[in-house]
Simulated scan of single mutants.
Amino acid sequence: MALLYQFFTALWELTGAMAPYILFGLFFAGILHEWLPENFIRKHLGGDTIFSVLKSTLFGIPLPVCSCGVIPLAASLKKEGASRGSVLSFLISTPITGIDSILATFGMFGWIFTIYRVVTSIVIAFIAGIVSNIVGERGDKDPAGSSASPIRPASFRADPPAPGQAGGACGCDGGCGAEAERGFSFFEAMRYGFVTLMGDIAKPLFWGLLIGAAITVAIPENIGEWLSGYTWLGYLLVIAIAVPMYVCATASLPIAASLVLSGVSLGAAFVFLSAGPATNTVTIGVVRKMLGSRSLIVYLATIVGGSLLFGLGLDLFFDTMQIDPRSVVHMEEHGGWATLLASVILWGLMLRFLLPPLFRRKRRCEGEEDSCCTKG
């Protein structure tokens, strides 16, 4: 009984530390999505120059697209003529961070760690893009996957078909990707943030909170002393778990916080936050098919190598400054009414998507497949 109480206490503390920042991030993500036109992305990511790689990296940092939504978007970019390097850097920088994840990182780890996470994500993605443009194009035929028709991701708006026109923006009969200009809609912005995007992250966030609470309760308090003599082992274990695992940037935060509070080094937790959202078994297969085997090697080598290098640098910094890494994690301020309300709202939103038979009706997309349907 005491163990169960500790579990739910840890779960509530994790929720309280993240909820206000996640909700604000979803709000801002909806505004950003509605404000940016769809063709803005494709327009600026073509070519194989260093500048195009840098733009794709920087644009992917705040973009509110999770690691599942970035795959069809990257496929569409490749079809529109974006270089391997631009596509690869976009594939890396976008899932690692997002406006909701950045704000949640700030709320849980503070501004120094947040800036470090964003800057290192830019460096890793940029290096991967540049190296991919250098070695990926040389003697490498276009993979079969790059000639496939673009897939319209759920994160893009899909306007309804015009009267008398079958398919509209979803149909690919000469009009795929074309959509009429329209003004800013606050309702659509909120619908994207709290319905579409929340629907993407609800399940991994739910499991991330549960796993984080379980780690807090289950891991022995003296694990930090054991790992202090085998720092390299902690890095290898985290990499082995993070690379094949599917976890979004926001859902990885409670797991990382619980690892740090349990005595695992902050650098190892950073490795999980960097490598976990950027890689998973699905994305690995897509990168190989869409960009080729050389780009896949670059993709994995830069993520793993960069995460380990920057994780080690973070541990060296805190060790030199003689700062306790556990003091970085902010989870004690969870008793205010605003935090309480935000926690209740966040759990309500998660349960809405985790229990669809009770809270929502199944939608049907008339005349087209599910790829043209907007989630929620």
Rank of each mutant, 00 (worst) to 15 (best):
2 A>F: 13
3 L>Q: 15
3 L>I: 14
5 Y>V: 11
11 L>A: 12
11 L>C: 10
13 E>M: 12
14 L>E: 13
33 H>M: 14
35 W>G: 09
38 E>F: 04
38 E>Q: 12
40 F>G: 03
43 K>Y: 05
45 L>S: 07
49 T>H: 14
50 I>F: 13
57 T>A: 06
60 G>R: 14
62 P>K: 06
64 P>I: 07
68 C>T: 05
69 G>E: 04
70 V>D: 10
73 L>F: 12
75 A>D: 06
77 L>R: 02
84 R>H: 12
86 S>I: 01
88 L>N: 05
94 T>K: 01
99 I>S: 10
99 I>E: 09
99 I>M: 11
100 D>A: 13
107 G>N: 05
107 G>F: 04
107 G>A: 05
111 W>Y: 07
120 T>K: 02
126 F>T: 00
131 V>D: 02
135 V>M: 04
137 E>A: 09
137 E>Q: 15
141 K>Y: 09
151 I>E: 15
156 F>C: 03
163 P>E: 15
167 G>L: 08
168 G>A: 10
174 G>P: 10
180 A>E: 11
181 E>Q: 14
183 G>S: 09
188 E>M: 02
189 A>W: 02
190 M>W: 12
191 R>G: 05
192 Y>D: 03
197 L>E: 12
203 K>E: 11
212 G>V: 12
216 T>Y: 08
216 T>Q: 07
218 A>Q: 06
223 I>F: 14
225 E>K: 11
230 Y>D: 09
231 T>E: 11
233 L>G: 02
235 Y>R: 04
242 A>I: 02
245 M>H: 07
246 Y>N: 07
249 A>M: 00
252 S>P: 08
263 G>C: 05
278 A>M: 15
279 T>D: 07
280 N>C: 09
281 T>E: 09
282 V>Q: 15
287 V>H: 07
308 L>G: 08
313 G>L: 14
313 G>T: 01
324 D>F: 11
326 R>P: 06
328 V>E: 07
339 T>N: 08
348 G>P: 03
351 L>T: 10
351 L>E: 06
355 L>R: 13
357 P>L: 04
358 L>S: 13
359 F>V: 09
360 R>Q: 15
362 K>V: 15
362 K>Q: 13
362 K>S: 14
364 R>H: 09
369 E>H: 11
374 T>N: 15
